[in-house]
């Protein structure tokens, strides 16, 4: 039962903080503190996360990196299947669960992505999208250092997803932590090209990231067919 407690607490904390809103952009009532978090994230990313991810790409053999990505993708596929089910998208969920079974069983716990070779497409459902599909609003926008953009809805989903990850089943704490560490590096390495482009494209990177994130999530919730946007202000 201990496992249940943390996500519930964090979700409650997120929701509570969501109530203390200030006027401004309706979707970003915490803009002032979010901007502080964004400013904190900048040096953390520049001097810690990004160099580590770059070293990972430069010095670790590609078959190890691919194996690591595949391992985490396999877990994502599992959650994609669960969320497909939660949204009643049985076809997609079937693909996802099929992938997980093939890759876990024949691909050494997901280290080899046989299912992609076999042409089974990857899904990309997650808890945040499920909540959106159920009609739960996204709630205030949040920027979390070293994690990135989120919302109360998506953040709650991410907490669920990482709290119940199968990696938790590994009994050895040290091994588990190494895997979590590699997961974080792998995630950052995937986005290495994106940051320089962001600096080039945006006038105010904070606004740019926020709008990109919110648009992207809306698009995913509606499976690529979001309703036409309303003119703001």
């Amino acid at each position: 039962m201990i496992r249940l407690r943390l996500p519930a607490l964090l979700a409650a904390a997120l929701l509570l903080s969501a109530c203390a809103s200030t006027p401004g952009r309706p979707y970003d009532p915490f803009e002032a503190s979010n901007r502080v978090m964004y400013a904190i994230n900048d040096p953390l990313d520049k001097y810690i996360a990004k160099p580590i991810a770059q070293a990972w790409v430069d010095y670790v053999p590609s078959f190890i990196r691919t194996g690591a990505s595949n391992y985490f993708n396999n877990i994502d596929d599992l959650f994609s299947g669960i969320n497909g089910l939660l949204q009643g998208k049985l076809d997609k969920a079937g693909d996802d669960f099929g992938r997980v079974m093939i890759n876990t069983g024949f691909g050494f716990l997901g280290l080899i992505d046989i299912a992609s070779e076999a042409g089974i497409p990857r899904g990309n459902e997650d808890f945040g999208q499920t909540f959106g599909y159920w009609g739960i609003p996204q709630g205030p926008y949040l920027f979390i250092p070293l994690w990135g953009p989120s919302t109360v809805r998506d953040g709650t989903g991410s907490i669920l997803r990482y709290w119940y990850t199968p990696t938790q089943l590994i009994p050895d704490v040290a091994v588990r932590n190494v895997i979590y560490g590699i997961g974080a590096i792998d995630a950052r390495a995937q986005a290495l090209g994106a940051t320089s482009l962001l600096e080039q494209a945006s006038i105010d990177p904070y606004t740019f990231v926020r709008r990109s994130y919110l648009q992207r999530r809306e698009y995913l919730v509606y499976d690529g067919k979001p309703p036409p946007e309303k003119e703001e202000e």
């Binding site: 006038i203 105010d204 606004t207 740019f208 709008r211």
Partner: peptide, 9 residues
């Protein structure tokens, strides 16, 4: 849409 936010600001 992205730039509209930036421009408005």
């Amino acid at each position: 849409t992205n730039y509209r936010d930036e421009f408005t600001e």
